[in-house]
Design a protein around this nucleic acid. Structure first.
Length: 272
DNA sequence: CAAGACTCCTGTCAGC
DNA sequence: TGCTGACAGGAGTCTT
Protein backbone atom coordinates (compact mmCIF):
# COMPACT_ATOMS: atom_id res chain seq x y z
CA UNK A 1 0.00 0.00 0.00
CA UNK A 2 1.49 3.26 -1.02
CA UNK A 3 2.96 5.53 1.60
CA UNK A 4 5.11 8.61 1.08
CA UNK A 5 8.05 6.97 -0.77
CA UNK A 6 5.73 5.04 -3.03
CA UNK A 7 3.65 8.09 -3.89
CA UNK A 8 6.81 10.12 -4.48
CA UNK A 9 8.12 7.51 -6.90
CA UNK A 10 4.85 7.41 -8.79
CA UNK A 11 4.82 11.18 -8.84
CA UNK A 12 8.29 11.37 -10.39
CA UNK A 13 7.41 8.74 -12.97
CA UNK A 14 4.26 10.54 -14.00
CA UNK A 15 5.97 13.93 -14.12
CA UNK A 16 8.70 12.63 -16.41
CA UNK A 17 6.27 11.08 -18.85
CA UNK A 18 3.28 13.39 -18.84
CA UNK A 19 4.09 17.01 -18.02
CA UNK A 20 3.40 19.20 -21.03
CA UNK A 21 1.68 16.48 -23.03
CA UNK A 22 -1.63 17.69 -24.49
CA UNK A 23 -4.67 15.88 -23.13
CA UNK A 24 -7.26 14.93 -25.72
CA UNK A 25 -9.89 12.87 -23.94
CA UNK A 26 -10.94 11.77 -20.45
CA UNK A 27 -13.20 8.83 -19.66
CA UNK A 28 -14.76 7.98 -16.30
CA UNK A 29 -15.52 4.26 -16.29
CA UNK A 30 -16.55 3.97 -12.67
CA UNK A 31 -17.10 7.14 -10.65
CA UNK A 32 -17.52 5.35 -7.36
CA UNK A 33 -14.46 5.87 -5.23
CA UNK A 34 -14.13 7.25 -1.72
CA UNK A 35 -15.97 10.20 -3.19
CA UNK A 36 -17.53 10.37 -6.63
CA UNK A 37 -15.15 11.37 -9.40
CA UNK A 38 -16.36 14.83 -10.46
CA UNK A 39 -17.64 15.03 -14.01
CA UNK A 40 -15.99 18.37 -14.53
CA UNK A 41 -12.74 16.60 -15.37
CA UNK A 42 -14.39 15.38 -18.57
CA UNK A 43 -14.52 18.91 -19.90
CA UNK A 44 -11.82 20.68 -17.89
CA UNK A 45 -8.90 18.44 -18.81
CA UNK A 46 -9.15 17.98 -22.59
CA UNK A 47 -7.34 20.77 -24.42
CA UNK A 48 -4.97 21.39 -21.52
CA UNK A 49 -1.87 19.64 -20.27
CA UNK A 50 -0.35 19.02 -16.86
CA UNK A 51 1.96 21.90 -16.03
CA UNK A 52 3.34 20.08 -13.03
CA UNK A 53 2.79 16.83 -11.17
CA UNK A 54 3.75 17.07 -7.52
CA UNK A 55 3.10 15.38 -4.20
CA UNK A 56 1.82 16.60 -0.84
CA UNK A 57 1.66 13.91 1.86
CA UNK A 58 0.14 10.97 0.00
CA UNK A 59 -1.78 13.17 -2.43
CA UNK A 60 -0.75 13.59 -6.04
CA UNK A 61 -1.40 17.03 -7.48
CA UNK A 62 -1.76 17.18 -11.25
CA UNK A 63 -1.92 20.85 -12.11
CA UNK A 64 -3.27 22.41 -15.29
CA UNK A 65 -3.94 26.05 -16.06
CA UNK A 66 -7.63 25.44 -15.37
CA UNK A 67 -7.32 23.64 -12.08
CA UNK A 68 -5.72 20.73 -10.29
CA UNK A 69 -6.62 17.07 -10.06
CA UNK A 70 -6.07 15.80 -6.51
CA UNK A 71 -5.48 12.07 -6.47
CA UNK A 72 -5.14 9.76 -3.49
CA UNK A 73 -4.23 6.14 -4.08
CA UNK A 74 -5.83 4.85 -0.89
CA UNK A 75 -4.67 1.29 -0.32
CA UNK A 76 -4.80 -0.21 -3.74
CA UNK A 77 -4.76 2.68 -6.17
CA UNK A 78 -2.43 2.63 -9.15
CA UNK A 79 -1.53 5.24 -11.73
CA UNK A 80 -0.31 3.43 -14.81
CA UNK A 81 0.99 5.00 -18.00
CA UNK A 82 0.71 2.83 -21.10
CA UNK A 83 0.34 3.11 -24.84
CA UNK A 84 -3.26 3.41 -25.91
CA UNK A 85 -3.90 0.11 -27.63
CA UNK A 86 -7.68 0.47 -27.66
CA UNK A 87 -9.62 -2.43 -26.23
CA UNK A 88 -11.51 -2.68 -23.01
CA UNK A 89 -10.48 -0.85 -19.83
CA UNK A 90 -8.69 -2.86 -17.16
CA UNK A 91 -10.54 -4.42 -14.27
CA UNK A 92 -11.29 -1.67 -11.69
CA UNK A 93 -10.10 1.06 -14.03
CA UNK A 94 -11.89 4.19 -12.85
CA UNK A 95 -10.47 6.99 -14.95
CA UNK A 96 -8.56 7.07 -18.21
CA UNK A 97 -6.79 10.16 -19.50
CA UNK A 98 -5.73 10.00 -23.15
CA UNK A 99 -2.88 12.09 -24.46
CA UNK A 100 -2.28 13.38 -27.95
CA UNK A 101 0.97 11.43 -28.18
CA UNK A 102 -0.87 8.11 -27.82
CA UNK A 103 -0.17 7.52 -24.13
CA UNK A 104 -2.87 6.84 -21.56
CA UNK A 105 -2.91 7.43 -17.82
CA UNK A 106 -5.09 4.89 -16.03
CA UNK A 107 -6.29 5.24 -12.46
CA UNK A 108 -7.02 1.74 -11.22
CA UNK A 109 -8.24 1.04 -7.69
CA UNK A 110 -9.77 -2.29 -6.78
CA UNK A 111 -10.72 -1.44 -3.22
CA UNK A 112 -12.04 2.01 -4.02
CA UNK A 113 -10.40 3.66 -1.03
CA UNK A 114 -8.70 6.12 -3.30
CA UNK A 115 -9.93 9.47 -4.56
CA UNK A 116 -9.84 11.46 -7.79
CA UNK A 117 -10.92 15.03 -7.11
CA UNK A 118 -10.72 18.41 -8.76
CA UNK A 119 -10.17 21.94 -7.54
CA UNK A 120 -9.94 25.17 -9.48
CA UNK A 121 -8.40 26.95 -6.51
CA UNK A 122 -5.07 26.67 -4.74
CA UNK A 123 -4.83 22.96 -3.88
CA UNK A 124 -2.88 23.78 -0.72
CA UNK A 125 -6.05 25.40 0.57
CA UNK A 126 -8.20 22.39 -0.22
CA UNK A 127 -9.83 21.04 2.90
CA UNK A 128 -8.02 17.72 2.57
CA UNK A 129 -4.63 19.41 2.38
CA UNK A 130 -4.72 22.59 4.39
CA UNK A 131 -4.31 21.00 7.83
CA UNK A 132 -1.55 18.60 6.91
CA UNK A 133 1.63 18.63 8.96
CA UNK A 134 5.11 19.18 7.52
CA UNK A 135 6.70 16.85 5.01
CA UNK A 136 9.03 14.54 6.94
CA UNK A 137 11.85 15.20 4.46
CA UNK A 138 11.56 18.96 4.76
CA UNK A 139 13.50 21.22 7.13
CA UNK A 140 10.25 22.19 8.77
CA UNK A 141 10.07 18.73 10.33
CA UNK A 142 12.68 18.97 13.06
CA UNK A 143 13.08 18.02 16.71
CA UNK A 144 11.74 21.33 17.99
CA UNK A 145 8.59 21.06 15.90
CA UNK A 146 7.99 17.45 16.87
CA UNK A 147 8.61 18.10 20.55
CA UNK A 148 6.08 20.92 20.81
CA UNK A 149 3.59 18.76 18.93
CA UNK A 150 3.96 15.50 20.90
CA UNK A 151 3.60 17.27 24.21
CA UNK A 152 -0.03 17.95 23.43
CA UNK A 153 -0.93 14.34 22.61
CA UNK A 154 -1.27 11.44 24.99
CA UNK A 155 -1.98 8.84 22.29
CA UNK A 156 0.50 6.10 21.50
CA UNK A 157 3.45 7.38 19.50
CA UNK A 158 2.66 5.02 16.64
CA UNK A 159 -0.82 6.43 16.25
CA UNK A 160 0.61 9.93 16.52
CA UNK A 161 3.00 9.32 13.63
CA UNK A 162 0.18 8.09 11.44
CA UNK A 163 -1.93 11.22 11.83
CA UNK A 164 -1.27 13.43 8.82
CA UNK A 165 -1.82 16.64 10.79
CA UNK A 166 1.28 15.82 12.83
CA UNK A 167 3.58 14.71 10.06
CA UNK A 168 2.53 14.02 6.49
CA UNK A 169 2.85 10.75 4.66
CA UNK A 170 3.87 8.18 7.30
CA UNK A 171 1.57 5.16 7.22
CA UNK A 172 1.35 1.85 8.98
CA UNK A 173 4.42 0.21 7.52
CA UNK A 174 6.87 3.06 7.96
CA UNK A 175 5.53 3.89 11.43
CA UNK A 176 6.55 0.41 12.63
CA UNK A 177 9.90 0.65 10.88
CA UNK A 178 10.72 4.11 12.20
CA UNK A 179 9.87 3.20 15.79
CA UNK A 180 12.03 0.10 15.65
CA UNK A 181 15.02 2.11 14.47
CA UNK A 182 14.37 4.75 17.12
CA UNK A 183 14.12 1.98 19.76
CA UNK A 184 10.77 3.38 20.88
CA UNK A 185 7.89 1.14 21.91
CA UNK A 186 4.81 1.75 19.73
CA UNK A 187 2.58 2.12 22.79
CA UNK A 188 4.72 4.78 24.43
CA UNK A 189 2.66 7.90 24.95
CA UNK A 190 3.63 10.70 22.55
CA UNK A 191 3.60 13.17 25.42
CA UNK A 192 6.33 11.22 27.21
CA UNK A 193 8.92 11.70 24.49
CA UNK A 194 11.96 13.78 25.36
CA UNK A 195 13.52 16.32 23.04
CA UNK A 196 16.26 13.76 22.37
CA UNK A 197 13.65 11.14 21.47
CA UNK A 198 12.17 13.63 19.02
CA UNK A 199 15.55 14.34 17.49
CA UNK A 200 16.13 10.62 17.02
CA UNK A 201 12.66 10.13 15.55
CA UNK A 202 13.23 12.89 13.02
CA UNK A 203 16.59 11.43 12.03
CA UNK A 204 15.42 7.85 11.60
CA UNK A 205 12.23 8.91 9.80
CA UNK A 206 14.32 10.71 7.20
CA UNK A 207 16.71 7.81 6.95
CA UNK A 208 14.00 5.19 6.46
CA UNK A 209 12.07 7.23 3.92
CA UNK A 210 15.19 8.08 1.94
CA UNK A 211 16.31 4.46 1.88
CA UNK A 212 12.84 3.38 0.73
CA UNK A 213 12.97 5.99 -2.03
CA UNK A 214 16.38 4.76 -3.12
CA UNK A 215 15.05 1.19 -3.25
CA UNK A 216 12.10 2.14 -5.41
CA UNK A 217 9.53 1.88 -2.62
CA UNK A 218 7.91 -1.14 -1.05
CA UNK A 219 5.85 -3.44 -3.23
CA UNK A 220 3.50 -5.42 -1.10
CA UNK A 221 0.20 -6.40 -2.56
CA UNK A 222 -0.76 -3.56 -4.82
CA UNK A 223 2.02 -1.07 -5.18
CA UNK A 224 3.53 -0.62 -8.60
CA UNK A 225 5.50 2.12 -10.32
CA UNK A 226 3.81 4.14 -13.03
CA UNK A 227 5.21 1.67 -15.58
CA UNK A 228 3.85 -1.29 -13.59
CA UNK A 229 7.22 -2.45 -12.21
CA UNK A 230 7.81 -3.25 -8.54
CA UNK A 231 9.87 -1.69 -5.75
CA UNK A 232 12.41 -3.41 -3.59
CA UNK A 233 12.20 -1.96 -0.09
CA UNK A 234 9.85 -4.69 1.17
CA UNK A 235 12.97 -6.85 1.37
CA UNK A 236 14.54 -4.37 3.77
CA UNK A 237 11.92 -4.30 6.52
CA UNK A 238 13.25 -4.72 10.04
CA UNK A 239 9.95 -5.53 11.70
CA UNK A 240 6.99 -5.10 9.34
CA UNK A 241 5.53 -8.49 8.45
CA UNK A 242 8.26 -10.31 10.41
CA UNK A 243 6.13 -11.72 13.23
CA UNK A 244 7.98 -14.50 15.05
CA UNK A 245 11.19 -13.99 13.08
CA UNK A 246 14.30 -13.01 15.04
CA UNK A 247 14.98 -9.32 15.64
CA UNK A 248 17.85 -8.28 13.40
CA UNK A 249 19.60 -6.76 16.39
CA UNK A 250 18.93 -8.99 19.41
CA UNK A 251 17.31 -12.14 17.95
CA UNK A 252 14.16 -11.83 20.10
CA UNK A 253 11.14 -12.91 18.03
CA UNK A 254 9.32 -9.92 16.54
CA UNK A 255 5.93 -9.40 18.17
CA UNK A 256 2.62 -8.19 16.70
CA UNK A 257 -0.28 -6.37 18.23
CA UNK A 258 -3.39 -4.56 17.11
CA UNK A 259 -3.26 -0.86 17.73
CA UNK A 260 -6.24 1.17 16.58
CA UNK A 261 -7.23 -1.65 14.20
CA UNK A 262 -3.78 -1.67 12.64
CA UNK A 263 -1.25 -4.44 12.81
CA UNK A 264 1.82 -3.22 14.60
CA UNK A 265 5.20 -4.91 14.62
CA UNK A 266 7.95 -4.38 17.17
CA UNK A 267 10.80 -5.97 19.07
CA UNK A 268 9.78 -6.41 22.72
CA UNK A 269 13.42 -6.27 23.79
CA UNK A 270 14.85 -3.42 21.74
CA UNK A 271 11.90 -1.03 21.91
CA UNK A 272 11.18 0.64 25.22
C1' DC B 1 -10.64 19.72 21.94
C1' DA B 2 -8.79 14.89 22.09
C1' DA B 3 -9.31 10.20 21.24
C1' DG B 4 -11.61 6.28 19.95
C1' DA B 5 -14.94 3.82 16.99
C1' DC B 6 -16.82 3.29 12.65
C1' DT B 7 -16.88 3.28 7.72
C1' DC B 8 -15.91 2.75 2.82
C1' DC B 9 -14.23 -1.87 -0.49
C1' DT B 10 -12.50 -6.29 -2.65
C1' DG B 11 -8.63 -9.63 -3.12
C1' DT B 12 -6.33 -13.12 -0.61
C1' DC B 13 -5.75 -16.76 2.29
C1' DA B 14 -6.54 -19.97 6.28
C1' DG B 15 -9.59 -23.34 7.90
C1' DC B 16 -13.02 -26.60 7.49
C1' DT C 1 -12.60 -28.46 -4.30
C1' DG C 2 -15.41 -24.88 -2.68
C1' DC C 3 -17.38 -22.15 0.70
C1' DT C 4 -16.95 -18.92 4.66
C1' DG C 5 -14.95 -15.62 7.37
C1' DA C 6 -11.00 -13.01 8.91
C1' DC C 7 -7.88 -9.76 7.50
C1' DA C 8 -5.48 -6.11 5.04
C1' DG C 9 -5.63 -0.76 5.87
C1' DG C 10 -5.81 5.53 4.77
C1' DA C 11 -8.21 8.75 6.57
C1' DG C 12 -12.57 11.26 6.87
C1' DT C 13 -16.37 11.49 9.89
C1' DC C 14 -19.09 10.56 13.61
C1' DT C 15 -19.45 9.60 18.75
C1' DT C 16 -17.97 9.85 23.28
Amino acid sequence: MPELPEVEIICRGLATKLVGEPIVKVVIHEANLRWRVPEIILTALPGTSFQSITRRAKYLLLATEKGTAIVHLGLTGRMIVTKNLGGKPSLHEHVTINFKNGLQLKFIDSRKFGAFLWTDEDPAQHKLLKNLGPEPLSDEFDAAYLYQKVRRHKIAIKQFLMVGDNVAGIGNIYASEVLFLARLHPLKSASELSLDDCKLLVDVSRKVLKRALAKGGSSIRDFAHSDGSAGDFQNCFHVYGRTGLPCLICKTPIATMRLNQRSTFYCPTCQK
